[in-house]
């Protein structure tokens, strides 16, 4: 039971990510920081969990296909009272449940991901199931821009469009980086918006760190009379919120030390004031 109404304050969420990354001496901090605002807005204003139950049959589905950003989702789930505090302080300790990538054994995480291009299709299946059952449940699939290198994404995009899964929304975290470099250097995606539009998705490009803008885009897409699936291309900054992590791809795989942890924490706390 969650006694405090969650605010999903983005500074607080980033602080949680930072604390758990430091506690667990883990990587993928940049991947989590780029989707903080997206997740905050989804949980705050859009995702429907009747009775705050992550397993409610009538819930909306949030599929974190880019499993590498899972710390951002853990931070939101903590606000909802779905995770205990010691899951964060003991992150990555032997025998602990929360893993470094999304894992569906955790109530509140819909899919096991991290191997990329999987969650999107599972989300398409869930959305198809909701359509066949005649419910109005929404499905959100959050994918990385690097992730859409995977061919399975485009198989799923064809299907969602062909079957007019109007309650399916893909959100692309376009932070411009993948593991080994920029998306431009590794495998150029050119216009992601044009690609999804050409697959039949109703698509909007936004600043993925502007909470109001995210909220408006999602509302606008859901209020559309079109039967087509939706896509939000969110322009984001990998490592957003900590100056020395922003657009520095080393924070895909660098671990915090005492110095970087304190510096990052100080920056986030400064933002809170």
């Amino acid at each position: 039971m969650n006694l405090h109404k969650p605010t999903f304050n983005v500074n607080k969420l980033r602080k949680t990510v930072l604390e758990m990354a430091y506690a667990g001496s883990t990587v993928h901090i940049g991947c989590a920081f780029s989707i903080i605002e997206l997740l905050a807005v989804l949980y705050r204003n859009h995702l429907n969990y009747p009775n705050n139950d992550p397993e409610s049959k009538m819930r909306d589905y949030l599929v974190l296909s880019k499993g590498h950003g899972v710390m951002a989702q853990y931070a939101c789930m903590r606000e909802l009272g779905w995770l205990k505090d010691n899951s964060f302080t003991e992150y990555f300790s032997n025998g602990s449940e929360l893993k470094g990538l999304s894992d569906s054994l955790i109530s509140g995480l819909e899919v096991t991901s991290g191997t990329l291009g999987h969650g999107f299709s599972v989300g398409v299946g869930m959305s198809l199931g909701a359509k066949l059952a005649g419910t109005n449940q929404k499905t959100y699939a959050l994918v990385g821009d690097g992730e859409i290198n995977e061919g399975a994404i485009w198989e799923g995009a064809l299907f969602a469009s062909h079957h007019e899964l109007k309650n399916f929304m893909v959100i692309i975290d376009e932070n411009g980086f993948q593991a080994m470099g920029t998306t431009k250097e590794v495998l150029n995606l050119n216009s992601i918006k044009n690609k999804f539009e050409s697959f039949g998705f109703e698509t909007i490009t936004i600043d993925g760190h502007d909470e109001e803008c995210i909220d408006q885009a999602i509302n606008k897409l859901w209020s559309s009379s079109s039967n087509m699936p939706k896509a939000v291309v969110a322009k984001t900054i990998k490592g957003k919120g900590v100056s020395f992590m922003e657009n520095n791809n080393e924070w895909h795989y660098t671990r915090l030390n005492e110095h970087t942890y304190n510096s990052a924490l100080a920056e986030i706390e400064k933002g809170e004031q």
């Binding site: 049959k57 599972v122 198809l128 199931g129 064809l158």
Partner: peptide, 17 residues
């Protein structure tokens, strides 16, 4: 599109099919 088909089957099974 077998990869998507099997992923979707997982999603459908998750929601009771």
């Amino acid at each position: 599109a077998e990869q998507n088909m099997v992923g979707m089957a997982a999603g459908l099974a998750r929601v009771g099919y």
